[in-house]
């Protein structure tokens, strides 16, 4: 050993013994010494002993002395934290009205949560208070807080990357590779779309494409309406044709015709302007 102590046994010998003195008020002062890396440390503890007597059945007392076995063999006395832990506090409220009480508490909690949310929702852009910007009492004195925010207020998504990484721009509103803004009117052109109802539920998109509407190809889009959970067809499909005349032909030729034991009903997906 580098510290000069030849062995731990010798080190223990150097440490003075523990001295216990009883005080007048019933406490005990324990002065002990320990060797901490060659340095002698003195520890003074004042201890009050409280005797707790617990009366148990003699058999119980005897059983407490049993030696542990099985998976617990050779484990130190006392509960092992791997298998035994103290749970969280539970209140057992007995009473016939416990259901109502619980409901009330729940309602209260929900109310509080709602309050927090509603507080957070309204925030003045000028002063940060809990009111609308237009109702801000300092509106005239402060003005719009920052130019960036003023732009945002105008309602036009001004843009992506340029404003820094802070603001999220939905994908469909971002500029394309050439730097052009996306077209404003995103509505689908449904002029060439037919709605097919009274379809047999076994009919799927490929059957519509390759069997029923094969001769009106090319088809821009074929969609069978399905139950979200089960995926089962609801007997309705939307078919978009390349041109309106093709769609009209399909409507005339197939409306009222049988397909998989059901009589088809075709109609324009959108009312035609007359």
């Amino acid at each position: 050993m580098s510290s000069g102590i030849s062995s731990w046994a010798d080190a223990a010998d150097d440490v003075p013994g523990t001295v216990v003195t009883s005080n007048a008020d019933g406490t005990k002062t324990v002065v002990s010494y320990r060797n901490n890396e060659g340095k002698l440390e003195k520890i003074t503890q004042i201890i009050k002993e409280v005797k707790v007597t617990e009366k148990v059945h003699p058999l119980v007392a005897q059983r407490r002395k049993w030696i542990k076995y099985g998976k617990e063999r050779n484990t130190p006395p006392g509960p092992d934290t791997r298998t035994t832990q103290l749970g969280e506090k539970i209140e057992l409220k007995l009473g016939t009205a416990w259901k109502e009480q619980e409901k009330e508490e729940e309602a209260l909690r929900a109310q509080e949560a709602a309050n927090i949310v509603s507080d957070q929702r309204i925030k003045c852009r000028s002063c940060g208070g809990a009111h609308f910007t237009s109702k801000c009492p300092y509106k005239d004195t402060l003005g719009p807080a920052t130019p960036a925010e003023a732009q945002g207020a105008s309602g036009i998504p001004e843009d992506d990357g340029a404003n820094g990484p802070g603001k999220y721009v939905p994908r469909h509103m971002r500029r394309d590779a050439n730097g052009n803004l996306p077209p404003k009117d995103m509505s689908r052109d449904d002029a060439c779309t037919l709605k097919v109802t009274q379809l047999n539920s076994i009919v799927d998109e490929t059957m519509l494409r390759s069997e029923l509407f094969a001769k009106y190809a090319p088809l821009a889009r074929v969609t069978v309406v399905r139950n979200k959970e089960t995926g089962e067809s609801r007997g309705i499909a939307y078919v978009t044709f390349a041109t309106e005349s093709l769609a009209e032909r399909a409507l005339e030729e197939l409306n009222g015709k049988g397909y998989y034991s059901l009589i088809l009903r075709l109609e324009w997906s959108k009312k035609k302007k007359t």
Binding site: H57, R63, K68, Y69, G70, K71, G78, P79, D80, T84
Partner: peptide, 26 residues
Amino acid sequence: DLIFSVAKDSTASIWYSSNGERLGTL
């Protein structure tokens, strides 16, 4: 003073009810 427990694993456990210390497993 003792709690005996069995589960779908193949070992039984015996516990002291006062402090949850496990006496042993069977």
